[in-house]
Structure formats: C-alpha cells, structure tokens
C-alpha cells in the first residue's frame, strides 16, 4: 500500500501541489493527465528521485519521504525503457538482484523465472540496441519485476510503441498484474489505457489531483470542465436548472431543454454528455431516451473507425462510419439527436 499525504514539489516548470492519494495493496492505479501535468514528477518523487518540499510518502505504512531510492523497494519503468545499453538482457534483469547481493544460484533462478513469465528467454544474450520497442519494454518490465518490488511504477510504458504492440503489451500488463498482484501505479495520457487497465483512476492536471474514482465513474462523471475536455467529453453545455421533480432536473440550455438525473434544484450548471451516448436518427423514434433535439449536420470529422458528427445546435455525436453511410449523413441533412437523462452529468457552475 502506498499513501501520499499533501506532497508538494516544484522542479523547473513542473510542480506537484498537495497531492494526497491512497493506493491499496495489489491495486492497479492509473494516474491520467495531459502532457506537463506532472505525472512523471509524481512517479519520480514516489521513487525517491526528488524530495518533496512538504508532505509525506508512506510505503506499507513506513514513512519513506526521505529514504534513498535503493531502500524503497520500488520497480520503475520509464516510457523509453532505459535499459542499460552496456549490459545484455540477462545482465539488465539481474542488475537489481546483484545489487542486493543475492547468491548466484538464486539470481539465475529468479532471472529465468521472470524471463519465462514475460516470454523473453530467447533474448537472454542480446544487447538492448538490437531489440525492438516491444522487446525492450518487456525486458524493462522484467528488470523491474525481478526484484519483487513492493510497488511498480510505470511511466507511460506503452506510449512509444506502435498500436499493435501497444495492444499486446496492454494485455500483457493486465495478465502480469493479475498473476503477481504487485501494487502498480501507471501514469498515462491515454484514456483507453486508463479504462482498460485501471482499478481506479486519478486525474492529474496542473500538478493537482482533481478527481479520483473508478474509471467508468471518472469518464462518465467528470468533476469539471477541464477534466471533461481532457477526457474527451465533446458536449459541454451551459444551462440553468428551471425545475426539479424527484431528482429529474429540467435544464434550459441555449436553444433546447435537457432532462437530466441530478439533485440540483436551481441555478447555473454545466452539462456533460459524452458523444458516444448520443444516438442520431433521420426520423423521429419511439424511445425511452428523455431527450430528443432536432438539428442539422454541419460537419463530419473522421476519427479512425468512428466519425464525429457536428450539429448546428452545438451537439456532437460519435457514430460508426457504417452508420454514417447507411444514414447518408452529410452537411445540411436534418437529424434527431437522442440521449438519456442518465447520460447527462450535471455540475453546478
């Protein structure tokens, strides 16, 4: 278990501001944030590479704020792997075990075991410069896991890989975590990684933790406009609550009314609707969705296998390319946008 209590630190243009977090034993914890948010600085501070200006870091209940890195029992994997270039794969993996003065026999066994679990025994005698990105990442992971760390810190471990390798390694990370149960803190700016890997997610912005929760909760119910924008919530609307009957709020926005599940009874609010929660139809539907807004298509933006359809009423909907083709949607076409009251997240301004 790892606990951060009000950790603050400034280093160059990066800073951490009163970070308080609690990562449970065996948890896969994601720190999600944009570039420059201080994610790497946070990991490096936990690892003991920087001393916080204030606050405490506890690892398994022991105050490690001022302990040198070698005494913390932490495995660290950087984005660009940072394998020791002058050592073979086997020497890289055994580095930490040798530094700990383990017997040769034990070192050999542990190295063989961790190499086998990551499927890299064939790389044993190779030098890092001869390995692919995916292989290097596996070796870096093996090196960190070989010391049986109390905590594994992963600094954007998948961001330098091609999409196919990234997907494979993402599954690998999940599998390794499930089999070893090592407490893991993984920082990333990739929302897919956060959703698919994290038991919980903390959103770090401008050196501050602005939201912590289960991935679905954070993605569906962002705490503020900045978080929502970063998490890809395309529909951020300002409005005023006109009525609330039994927890169902009626919000007047610019141009249309929205029904949402919210305890807020009055006042100015911000509404968040994820674009994938909006259904488009060329004709009126009989639907359980409480909201239906008519609009005209103004623009269609391709996003890989999906497209983002912009409407003149300000809404944006994410649909598949196939749906786009089947509905014959193009700029100028009239459509109906449906979304459920439960898909609308309301926060007071």
């Amino acid at each position: 278990m790892i606990v951060l209590e009000g950790v603050s630190l400034t280093l160059g243009s990066f800073q951490l501001r009163r970070i308080s977090l609690r990562v449970e034993r065996g948890e896969y914890f994601i720190v999600l944030g944009p570039t420059g948010a201080g994610k790497t600085l946070l990991l490096e501070t936990i690892a003991g590479f920087h001393t916080p200006r204030e606050g405490r870091i506890l690892i398994d209940g022991v105050d490690m704020t001022y302990a040198p890195p070698e005494e913390r029992g932490i495995g660290f994997v950087y984005q660009d792997y940072l394998l020791f270039p002058h050592l073979t794969v086997e020497e890289n993996i055994s580095f930490g075990l040798r530094a700990r003065g383990l017997a040769e026999e034990e070192i050999r066994e542990r190295v063989a075991q961790v190499m086998k679990s990551l499927g890299i025994p064939h790389l044993r005698g190779r030098y890092p410069s001869t390995l692919s990105g995916g292989e290097q990442q596996r070796v870096a992971l093996a090196r960190a896991l070989a010391i049986s760390p109390k905590v594994l810190l992963l600094d954007e471990p998948l961001s330098a890989l091609d999409p196919q390798t990234r997907e494979t390694l993402r599954r690998e990370l999940r599998r390794v975590h499930e089999s070893l149960g090592t407490t893991t803190i993984h920082v990333t700016h990739d929302r897919v990684e956060a959703l698919t890997l994290g038991d919980r997610v903390a959103v770090l912005m401008g050196g501050e933790v602005v939201q912590v929760g289960a991935p679905e909760e954070v993605f569906e119910r962002p705490g503020g406009v900045e978080v929502a924008e970063f998490l890809g919530v395309e529909n951020i609307l300002s409005g005023v609550v006109r009525a609330n009957r039994g927890g169902i709020a009626v919000v007047e926005t610019e141009g249309f009314q929205v029904t949402a599940i919210s305890p807020i009874e009055s006042g100015e609010v911000t509404l968040f609707i994820r674009p994938e929660n909006i259904i488009l139809s060329r004709s009126r539907l009989e639907s359980s969705a409480r909201n239906c807004v008519e609009g005209r298509v103004t623009e269609v933006t391709p996003l890989g296998p999906t497209v983002l359809v912009h409407l003149d009423n300000g809404l944006k909907a994410s649909i598949t390319r196939r749906s786009l083709e089947e509905m014959g949607l193009r700029p100028g076409r009239r459509v109906y946008a449906y979304f459920k009251a439960t898909s609308v997240h309301v926060v007071p301004k």
Binding site: F49, P68, E70, F76, Y78, L82, F95, G96, A99, I147
Partner: peptide, 12 residues
C-alpha cells in the same frame, strides 16, 4: 535516468 533506474533497483 539510467542512474535513477539503477538506484530504484537497489544499487547505492
């Protein structure tokens, strides 16, 4: 950062 990794692995 190579030195940092080495330290994290237990090397003084």
């Amino acid at each position: 950062r190579l030195e940092r990794v080495a330290r994290s692995l237990g090397a003084g």
